[in-house]
């Protein structure tokens, strides 16, 4: 599981935001396009691609995309 690929998958849920905006350090809650629907899309993407269920609380707790990546890594480790 690579962080670059994760950032790419994360960015793939956005339609209007410039792809250059996304890096592991992006504070995604501050992106204009970020919404409850995008959050749900990210959760579903993680389920589909990484096979783990991230809760809304995990989304809220993560500040950067890397934080979320680490949550996914932890959940996968627990499997």
């Amino acid at each position: 599981m690579e962080i670059e690929e994760f950032v790419e998958n994360f960015a793939g849920q956005f339609v209007d935001t410039d792809l250059n905006v996304f890096s592991k350090d992006t504070v995604f809650h501050e992106l204009d396009e970020y919404s409850s629907l995008i959050a749900l899309m990210v959760i579903s993407m993680i389920d589909e691609v990484y096979g783990v269920t991230v809760e809304y609380d995990d989304m809220a707790a993560a500040v950067t995309i890397e934080d979320l990546f680490n949550t996914v890594k932890r959940l996968k480790g627990e499997q």
């Binding site: 629907l37 749900l40 899309m41 579903s44 993407m45 389920d47 589909e48």
Partner: peptide, 9 residues
């Protein structure tokens, strides 16, 4: 029951 998913997922 309910299940929340965007249509694409």
């Amino acid at each position: 029951i309910t299940r929340r998913r965007p249509i694409s997922f």
